[in-house]
Design a protein around this nucleic acid. Structure first.
Lengths: 306, 306
DNA sequence: TAAAAATACTCCATAGGTATTTTAT
DNA sequence: ATAAAATACCTATGGAGTATTTTTA
């Protein structure tokens, strides 16, 4: 049985005339006759009772025609579904974003994304890099925005922007009035870090002197907002990524944010499986992110290589 | 798009492995790969994300696979339906029977028919020959049992049996005690006929002297039972076909039934469209009728020729 | 007799096979 | 290094065409 045979069957049922049915199918009458006969032979059933003046479905013919219509409808559905999917970034997509980025970047990203791709049903998953990558590999995410580099192999990375780190100082501290803070300034100060698993914790540790300087008694916040409150309470210093700093309110609520002397930054990128079939969409999204970043971060020109 | 392509698609979805899927479909791996790739190209969509170690459906792939399964299920349904229909005399069939035959023959026919073909859902339509034939031609009947010959062309006739006519005499009449009744006996007696349209009326008229002897004032009953009552009331004579006569009760309720001298009879046959696709079923039914007739009629041997 | 379906036959597009290469772990 | 998918290339089945015959209303 072939789909064409079913098409011919339905055409004959509709036209009740082999010649007209054949025209409607854009084939010759003998072709249609032969195929229909073959179908009848394969099914072991007579589908139409025909004379040279009339063509009428038999009882079993009616049933088969009915089913055949449904088959063809569903085939057409498949075509429709796929045609709809040709449009990039439409339908369900899931994007992972690390917690130290999501709340600060998404307000910049989502409005233009929604404007450009209204049919996109984006699901944002906020989690630490390790778990985001695990989910990428098990196909439960389409892409993820994390700090680069990811040690993971068989992933493709699209660098998006470099995000400088700032130093958050307790409001009353003398450094709160410095123009910039150096690594030496922090040498003897308590540093507050995020909890284990956050990449930002590791980056901060690396910058501020490594694990050696990390006293076991340190506070371990699970969000930058908590960390910010701890700084405001005078418990110590911390590093904040640029996007986490309200643009015009660098000194607010007992926290003074000062530039870090030197070039402390993290690189944020979009990653996906190397085999992900819609790299075009990844690139589209990457470009959209780059185009709508605030001035506080440095976009990396065009995400099309490596 | 072809059904085989959809089969390959579903097989790959099930096995998540091209080689195994190919084996399951009894084709080579390259064949399956090629066909699936062609399907993807035609649909303009990637259905599986594959490495050499893993094969996983994409989002759109899941949707298409789902539809494809339904398509294949329905195709299988078609096969099942047709396989079921290969068994003769099962499912819905409609049979027309003339009113002067139905109530007397069906009690003989239906029980063995039900026994031999329990899955048959027979619809019996009782009407006069003319309308039965009209319904045959418009395909709203599969077959009909009528008196032969039918003038209708493009119908096939299967003779079933010859049914002798008897004379029903009013109980008190002198002929009620005759051994047999001759045409001459009836010469001066009133004859009762069925209403217009019944073939039995025409046959009785033909036997008893034609339209010339039919006074306009005659009673026109619409059933043999009414006619029998009229005879019992002494209003006249009539012809009754053999089956209409209770076997062991030829003289009952004021009606004496006597043989007709000579060979007055009607021939009953099964008719269907010449193009009817299940002549085998017609023959099956004909044989079944013949095999279960009461002794009062003469079956016509084997219904397989004209 | 005329209109329509069925048959005869020819051709080529393509599904399927085998052998091989590419790829990714 | 190895297992698996992709590619190259060949073969042959069968879908589709034209020309013709058969059928039946």
């Amino acid at each position: 049985m072939t789909l064409n045979e079913l098409r011919y069957l339905v055409a004959v049922a509709d036209h009740r005339h082999f010649g007209k049915a054949a025209s409607a199918c854009f084939v010759s009458q003998p072709t249609l006759s032969t195929q229909l006969k073959k179908l009848e032979e394969q099914l072991g059933v007579i589908l139409f009772e025909r004379t040279n003046k009339s063509v009428r479905p038999t009882g079993i013919g009616e049933q088969v025609i009915d089913k055949a219509r449904r088959v063809l409808d569903q085939v057409e559905d498949i075509r429709t579904i796929c045609r709809g999917d040709r449009e990039p970034l439409c339908g369900a997509r899931s994007l992972g974003v690390i917690p130290t980025l999501a709340p600060y970047l998404l307000p910049w990203l989502l409005p233009p994304l929604r404007r450009a791709h209204p049919a996109l049903e984006l699901i944002v998953v906020e989690d630490i890099t390790e778990r985001l990558i695990a989910r990428l590999k098990e196909h439960s995410l389409d892409g993820a925005m994390v700090a680069l580099p990811t040690s993971a192999s068989d992933l493709i990375e699209r660098p998006l922007f470099d995000e400088p780190f700032y130093v958050a100082c307790p409001g009353g501290h003398r450094l709160a009035r410095a123009r910039a803070v150096t690594l030496a300034d922090l040498e003897s100060e308590p540093i507050l870090y995020l909890a284990d698993g956050h990449c930002l914790r590791d980056q901060a540790l690396a910058i501020c002197g490594g694990a050696a300087r990390d006293p076991t008694g340190d506070f371990r916040a699970t969000s930058l907002e908590t960390l910010r409150q701890l700084v405001a309470a005078g418990l110590g210093f911390t590093l904040l990524p640029a996007l986490a700093i309200p643009e015009d309110q660098r000194d607010l609520a007992g926290v003074a944010v000062r530039p870090f002397a030197g070039t402390a930054k993290r690189r944020i990128g979009l990653v996906c499986r190397a085999t992900y079939p819609h790299l075009d969409e990844i690139d589209l999204l990457a470009q959209l992110v780059i185009d709508h970043l605030p001035a506080s971060v440095r976009p990396l020109r065009s995400a099309l290589n490596q």
